[in-house]
Amino acid sequence: MYVPIAAFDITSMVAVSVRSTIHFVLLILTAVILNACATHPPTPIQVNSQAHQASLQNTQQWTLKGRMAFKSPDDKFSANVNWQQIQDSYHLSLNTMLGINILSMHGDDDSVELDADGEHYQDTDASHLIWRITGWQIPVSQFPFWIKGQAASKDEAIYAKSGVIDQLIPRCENCNGWLISYKDYQKVDDIWLPHNIKLNNPMLGNQILIRVNQWIKQ
């Protein structure tokens, strides 16, 4: 059977052109997908440890928003956490995913008030009040320092090569057995703050995990 040479050539050329176009489109799509899946490397941290600790000490007005998980031998829960600190005064609220309040507490160095389960409580010591109401043995007064990654003068701090604290062994009263670990430091304005904090006390069987969604410096 006779087949026109021109027709055969045109058909072949069209087929080659279509295959080339499809191949090109697939290459572009692959590049886009790979680029979308690629993770950007974290911003490198390099600070002077003493200068960084001084900056943390001077940061006394802030708000932390995130997620907290607590586990003890008798209890465990997770909640949204909102902690606002203004100098020595603080306000802490824990809420469920549905926005139902679990606990609200506000106070300063001299007094503390707590609302939970429709009841109102007062005390002069936040740690004692928390223990009285919930049974949790937590040194609340140290939390504003621990959350920021700030070490007290007597604490044993293990620094990463970048200059920020990797682990903290506090030496304060009622701090026996606690170990605080830090990960995922991110720069907030002009200071590096941890966004993943683990507080562990094997002696008490207590563990607190805090994942920070947002730091707000005021």
Rank of each mutant, 00 (worst) to 15 (best):
E156W: 04
A126N: 10
S162L: 06
K154V: 07
C175L: 06
G118Q: 04
D166K: 15
Q150I: 09
D115A: 05
A116Y: 09
I133H: 03
A126F: 05
K148V: 09
D125V: 05
W136C: 00
K154T: 10
Y159T: 04
I147T: 04
P144H: 15
F145D: 07
G149N: 12
I147Y: 01
S162A: 15
Q122A: 10
A157R: 09
A152Q: 11
F143W: 15
I180P: 03
D123C: 02
H120I: 06
Q137C: 02
C172D: 14
R171A: 13
I165T: 07
Q137V: 06
V140D: 00
W178E: 00
D123V: 04
Q142R: 13
I180R: 12
S162Y: 06
P144A: 12
G118W: 14
Q167V: 05
K161W: 08
Q137R: 11
G177S: 05
P170G: 04
R132V: 05
I130E: 01
S181M: 09
E113I: 13
A152M: 14
D115V: 13
Y159L: 12
P139N: 13
Y159M: 12
E113N: 14
E156T: 14
K161M: 12
C175F: 11
D125C: 09
V112E: 05
L129K: 03
Q142N: 10
G163Y: 15
S162V: 10
R171K: 13
G177Q: 04
A152G: 08
A152T: 15
H120T: 00
R132Y: 00
T134M: 01
S141R: 03
S141Q: 12
W146G: 02
P139I: 06
F145I: 03
E119T: 07
I169F: 13
S141V: 11
S153V: 12
G135S: 08
G177T: 10
D166E: 15
C175H: 11
K154R: 14
Q150L: 15
P139W: 10
N174E: 10
I180E: 01
I169Y: 13
S141P: 02
Y121K: 07
H120A: 10
K148A: 09
D125Y: 09
D155E: 05
R171S: 15
C172Y: 06
W146E: 01
C172T: 15
N176L: 07
P139A: 09
V164P: 11
G118L: 08
V140Q: 06
S162F: 07
L114Q: 03
S111M: 05
I158D: 11
H128P: 01
V140C: 09
E173D: 07
S181A: 13
W136H: 12
W131N: 14
I133M: 01
W146Q: 06
S181V: 00
K161I: 09
V164H: 10
N174K: 10
T134A: 03
V112S: 07
C175D: 10
H120V: 01
Y121T: 01
R132I: 03
Q122G: 00
F143A: 09
L168D: 00
S153G: 01
G149D: 06
S162E: 13
I180D: 05
I147L: 12
P139G: 12
W146I: 03
I130H: 01
P144W: 11
D117N: 04
L114E: 02
K154N: 09
W136Y: 12
E119N: 11
D115Q: 11
V140M: 14
